[in-house]
Design a protein around this nucleic acid. Structure first.
Length: 754
DNA sequence: GGGGGCTATGGGGGG
DNA sequence: CATAGCCCCC
């Protein structure tokens, strides 16, 4: 071993170094938060290259594309540009890339479409309807989860109908025909030339397992070293694929998994900690390295994290420690409402920035559900603090974007039924539900795609000609594509000729303008794509085809975007924060029914997962950790009163500095009399100041500054000011905390008093 | 047969 | 509070 001269090894502690320089055989790295896991992975790959392994022989499976990209950049610093040839990416994106080359061997077109979860749900809903089932009982989301779980556990439709557990579970949930939907769903995807997210894994598995044309040997030979990051969040199927790559006669089993059972937070997606335990059984001669020194967080934060995670029963034994001193203790802040929570957090951010000279990028706000982001946005904007929201509705999920993408998808793969259904009548061209239903029926009878049914369907004269017109248009697009137009030019042509641009231009509202902007942004992105001359991906250099474009965006998530140049506060869900770190972290909404989520309360296992999620959230903090919870908040359009989260009590008292004293006086003038009464029992009445019988709101355009007005929830008040966006600032007499409310007149219900 | 407006219902995390 | 389905009208 030529360790001498590899200076990067000096940047590692003893255990990290051992994990890096051992290059042969199975390795398991258990890595606590902030323990230099990424450093180990990147240097390990760099080391492999240094000792003579070709970059393209290394398969590194990461959790996000961004993580892969960052890792590649760091490897490049050590070994140079050859790092770009490492196969680093997510399971989904790397397998999609392989399947683009190999899919024809297992009965899919290489230009297969990737169905996102909306496509899947739409298809499932169609099937539910065609089977005449009650769509309230047969909830598409639940069915999709069921299908996803089946695929993730390698349960085929055939196996499903023979699986007592699966069938009984469905019967219990009054959905005994789930197996039938699953069967139809699989057939439909197949004949549409489409793979859903789970298929990218499942079909990859099939490809290797069935091994047509000896394709498995090719990949086994190519990937001499396989590394998996965040192994605790892989599912059964992903592990089975991993074994397909690694296990064969005479294999050196050069597989390295890195993970932390305490940070497993994706079981809802089929991930299972069992994989870590199973790995030890499957590779008995493995070397295990435990990275227990935390370089990220101060003593108090590490102590708090250890304290919290100690409440979980089953874990791999380890003790995370730090030699960083503890400075500020954890602040817990109670607020009276979700609005107050937003205001306080914004205020505290300003204070921290001044006192500790933090930049915005040093700060993150983490919440359990994306819906909570709104109040924080509002108050950050009000305080002129720049921010960015990660996750939530991504750009590519917007309607106008999906519409154009559907045209592109259909042009590339006319059998893509979901794309066709989406745009056959958008913009409106007189092809309605009746026509589509006829098409669906005949497609089902003949087991072909909708596109293939078009010439055979019997319709009225009018419908026939309209449909023919549509088909001719798509055929024209295909012709243009085949003539070699690049993806950008094709998209520009399509957006004009299909009438997408004119449809959006006809909408003069703010939203309409925004949509048009988004459409143009997508086109700009495509232009970048075709004009890009920087080779980042050596395997398929500068493929500017439509197929390559669609694949490149199908698996992009909001998290993959490059960090902005601008100095922004980060807002994201606790799931999305995995792998990140910030000097100052605000974990907000720490309330029962929210964090832990009400969905998890009935099962101890799920509570433990929520606890791990809390563990992940608090261990993002380097120096300052602030936790907030609120007495009341709007949830699902209703005012709810939640108890403080049970996890707050699990924080060791000595790590917590100041529980900001409870304001005894409540905003609504009532003590909390709720006792065991659970939130659903609460009525909005608690909040109403005014008897609705005597409340007659006036036309809000009549509201002027200086007026006395009455508000249903806040009572009487005086209008102080109305700004140019028609937001009124009103001081309410009976509101003790934060009496000045900002009310959007557009939506306001106010009665003029004088 | 298709389009537009209204009512009812459901609402977690994400590749 | 947002979306989907339903009903009514063209």
């Amino acid at each position: 071993m030529q360790e001498v001269g590899h200076s990067y090894l000096d940047e590692l502690n003893e255990i990290q170094r051992k994990a890096v320089v051992q290059t042969d055989g199975p390795i398991m790295v258990i890595a606590g938060p902030g323990s230099g896991k990424t450093r180990v992975l990147t240097y390990k790959i760099a080391h492999l290259i240094n000792i003579g392994i070709a970059p393209w022989q290394i398969l590194a499976l990461t959790f996000t594309n961004k993580a892969a990209k960052e890792m590649k950049a760091r490897i490049e610093k050590v070994v140079g540009p050859s790092a770009r040839r490492v196969w680093a990416g997510t399971f989904h994106s790397l397998f999609a890339r392989i399947l683009r080359v190999e899919a024809h061997r297992i009965g899919y077109p290489n230009d297969f479409t990737i169905y996102d979860s909306d496509d899947s749900k739409s298809l499932i809903n169609e099937l539910i309807k065609s089977m005449d089932l009650d769509k309230k009982v047969y909830n598409a989301g639940a069915i999709r989860a069921r299908i996803s779980a089946s695929k993730s556990n390698l349960i085929t439709p055939k196996a499903y109908v023979q699986n007592e557990d699966m069938l009984n579970y469905d019967k219990m949930n009054r959905r005994p025909l789930t197996f039938k939907i699953y069967e139809k769903y699989v057939a439909r995807c197949k004949r549409s030339g489409a793979m859903d997210f789970d298929d990218l894994l499942l079909q990859m598995f099939r490809l290797l397992y069935e091994n047509p044309d000896g394709v498995k040997d090719k990949y086994q030979k190519q990937f001499s070293h396989v590394l998996v990051d965040e192994f605790q969040d892989t599912n059964f199927l992903q592990y089975e694929i991993l074994k397909q790559f690694v296990n064969y006669e005479g294999s050196p089993h050069n597989v390295c998994i890195v993970g932390d059972d305490a940070q497993s937070i994706y079981s809802f997606r089929g991930a299972t900690i069992e994989n870590i335990l199973q790995f030890e059984t499957d590779y008995p001669n493995l070397s295990t390295f435990k990275l227990e020194q935390n370089y990220r967080s101060s003593q108090h934060i590490v102590d708090a994290a250890n304290g919290v995670i100690g409440y979980n029963r089953r874990q791999i034994e380890k003790k995370i420690w730090t030699d960083k001193p503890g400075q500020d203790k954890i602040k817990i802040v109670k607020t009276i409402s979700d609005n107050e929570e937003g205001r306080r957090v914004a205020d505290m951010i300003i204070e921290q920035k001044h006192r500790h000279s933090l930049k915005n990028t040093d700060i993150a706000i983490l919440y359990r559900t994306n819906a909570q982001s709104r109040v924080f946005e509002e108050f950050l904007r009000r305080q002129n603090i720049l921010y960015r929201i990660y996750g939530g509705l991504s750009f590519y999920q917007r309607k106008e974007i999906k519409d154009l993408l559907a045209y592109l998808r259909l042009t590339l793969n006319p059998n893509d039924d979901e794309a066709l259904k989406r745009i056959v009548n958008y913009p409106k061209r007189g092809i309605g539900a009746t026509t589509v239903n006829k098409l669906l029926r005949i497609s089902d009878d003949n087991q072909v795609s909708i596109w293939q049914s078009i010439p055979h369907v019997q319709l009225s004269k009018r419908a026939t000609s309209l449909l023919a017109e549509f088909a001719a248009m798509i055929a024209t697009f295909r012709k243009i594509m085949d003539e070699g137009k690049n993806a950008y030019d094709l998209a520009v042509t399509i957006s004009k000729r299909a009438g997408l641009v004119s449809a959006l231009k006809a909408d003069n509202t703010m939203e309409g303008l925004g949509r048009l902007e988004n459409l143009n942004a997508l086109l700009d992105g495509m232009k970048d794509f075709v004009e890009n001359d920087e080779v980042l991906d050596e395997e398929n250099p500068l493929d500017k085809s439509l197929s390559a474009y669609l694949q490149s965006i199908a698996l992009i998530t909001d998290m993959d975007q490059d960090k902005e140049e601008t100095d922004v506060v980060s807002l994201m869900s606790t799931h999305a924060c995995k792998g990140l770190e910030f000097k100052s972290v605000f974990v907000v909404g720490m309330e029962e029914n929210l964090f832990p989520s009400y969905m998890s309360l009935s099962s101890p296992d799920q509570i433990e997962e929520e606890r791990r999620l809390f563990y992940v959230a608090i261990t993002r903090a380097e120096e300052f950790l602030t936790i907030t919870y609120s007495n009341s908040r709007y949830q699902h359009g209703q005012m709810r009163f939640n108890d403080p989260s049970r996890f707050l009590e699990e924080l060791p008292p000595e790590t917590v500095d100041s529980v900001v004293p409870l304001k005894q006086k409540q905003e609504f003038g009532q003590p909390k009399i709720l006792g065991n009464f659970k939130p659903t029992g609460l009525k909005r009445l608690n909040k109403v100041k005014v008897d609705p019988q005597n409340f007659h709101p006036d036309d809000s355009s009549k509201i002027k500054a200086g007026m006395r007005v009455m508000h249903l929830k806040f009572g009487e008040g005086k209008v102080i000011d109305i700004d140019e966006r028609f937001v009124a600032t009103i001081a309410f007499d009976q509101v003790t905390v934060n009496p000045e409310k900002r009310i959007m007149l557009q939506y306001a219900k106010l009665q003029i008093l004088e």
